[in-house]
Amino acid sequence: MNSRNSRIGLTLFAIYLLLYGGFVFINAFSPTTMEATPVAGVNVAILCGFGLIVTAFIFALLYGFLCGPTEDDR
């Protein structure tokens, strides 16, 4: 792994850790927040859950895209 890839990876990792950690902490310390229904009658718990799963996939694609070309040239 070259250092550029690892830097991108760690940055995305840190952002995701914040998102996941935030979600877990809200669940633990303010569970009622999860009951609100801000969009289309769907509650925050489901929106956040789907959001975290979709974000993981988008980050994965982003990572693959950002460090793709350098290695394929080799």
């Binding site: 792994m1 890839n5 690892s6 990876g9 760690l10 995305l12 990792f13 995701y16 850790l17 996941y20 979600f23 669940n27 718990a45 489901i46 859950g49 975290l52 799963i53 993981a56 980050f59 994965a60 990572y63």
Partner: peptide, 28 residues
């Protein structure tokens, strides 16, 4: 109800560690 889905979220989030931190060094 919803609680089981917390496992889904956690199990998937673990893959972020696998991809960004572990995957390439493991292979190398």
């Amino acid at each position: 109800g919803y609680d089981g889905f917390l496992y889904s979220i956690g199990y998937l989030a673990g893959w972020i560690v696998a991809l960004f931190v572990v995957a390439e060094p493991m292979k190398r």
